[in-house]
């Protein structure tokens, strides 16, 4: 030792184990339960869509880094894999490969790399891709395969619970009359419903949330606040008129609320930095989701709600400062 030189650096001299690759790995692990439910429900389709999406996203990032930005490819940090998984979680499990490719290119290329890569994107990349696909390929993006474990790539398609609700209400039916057409709440909870790949099972997603909280990857502020906001707000409407509005439990368990609140609104880059800010952001996401679901043209509004709130993040960060020590007036 006496031959080699000592290292000198400013303090602190130790560092936590939880670095970006570890965080990303943690998030990927947290998504696995939801993926397993999907595979159980949709069989090979889920594997196919998720695999392709990850491959395309990581590939797009690698190519953009290597040939456009001419810098060391950054896929080792794992964020492209997460974008790929999240994009897959947000699309039906029977999506053709070319649409997945377009979605991946938009997600990574426009949503992330055009702003300078990890950390600089104002909008959640996976959601940018998802919304782009939803607007460009409305038919393919809303042909949900039914939740039956079919180990082939073809299956019957149908609407999501939220879609049934929206269409039914438009046709002049009442909520109690529509309810029998849908799976039970237990089915919602454990994932036997139609919908996007990752939003099947609230239960699986909650396991993921538990894991991320345990690893201290995220705090409770965004997911809990967002789900609570949706619950309370739909609860108020339901209380006012249960024939026109579905129950709060229905709203929380169906569609993308859980997925959005747990995995997409909590994205480090596109959510506020302070706890106060996180709560305001999550309330905004919740309120917008409910407004779009109940009064908007689309049956589901989580993606739009989160993207809209993403745009407010810089503003929230500027005005909602943490409590400073020793500066109470």
């Amino acid at each position: 030792m006496s031959q080699s030189l000592l290292t000198v650096a400013p303090s602190p001299h130790i560092h936590t184990e939880l670095t970006i690759p570890q965080v990303m790995r943690g998030v990927i692990i947290a998504m696995v339960p939801a993926l397993l439910v999907s595979v159980y429900n949709f069989g090979l389709g889920a594997v196919y869509v998720t695999g392709l999406s990850i491959l395309f996203c990581a590939g797009a990032e690698w190519i953009i880094c290597k040939y456009l930005l001419k810098r060391e490819p950054s896929i080792a940090d794992g964020s492209a894999v997460i974008t790929g998984m999240l994009l897959a979680f947000n699309v039906p499990s029977n999506l053709p490969w070319h649409i997945i490719l377009i979605g991946s290119l938009v997600s990574v290329g426009i949503g992330k790399m055009s702003f300078g890569g990890l950390g600089n994107n104002p909008f959640n990349p996976a959601l940018v891709g998802r919304v782009f696909l939803l607007l460009s390929f409305p038919v393919e993006m809303t042909s949900w395969p039914q939740a039956v474990a079919t180990w082939s790539l073809d299956g019957t398609t149908g609407a999501t619970p939220l879609g049934i609700l929206k269409d039914g209400l438009r046709a002049g039916e009442t909520v109690p009359a529509l309810m029998p057409q849908m799976p039970s709440y237990t089915d919602f909870f454990f994932g036997f419903q139609g919908g996007s790949l990752g939003e099947m099972s609230a239960f699986a997603l909650l396991i993921g949330l538990g894991y991320m909280l345990y690893r201290k990857i995220i705090t409770w502020h965004i997911p809990v606040t967002m789900i609570a906001t949706v619950f309370v707000m739909t609860g108020i409407f339901w209380f006012i008129d249960p024939t026109r509005f579905a129950s709060p439990l229905f709203h929380v368990l169906t569609g993308g609320v859980m997925l959005g609140a747990i995995f997409m609104a909590t994205d480090y880059v596109t959510s506020p930095v302070s706890h106060k800010g996180m709560i305001v952001f999550a309330i905004g996401c919740g309120v917008l989701t409910v407004l779009i679901r109940l009064f908007g043209a689309y049956p589901e509004g989580v993606s739009f709600a989160i993207l809209i709130m993403n745009a407010f993040v810089p503003l929230i960060n500027t005005y909602l400062k943490p409590v400073r020590y020793g500066r109470k007036k």
Binding site: G119, V273, S274, N317
Partner: peptide
């Protein structure tokens, strides 16, 4: 890496 705005430094800052 780039700052990912995770807010962990804010959470940790005792001031």
């Amino acid at each position: 890496y780039n700052c990912v705005h995770c807010g962990k430094c804010i959470e940790a800052c005792p001031m």
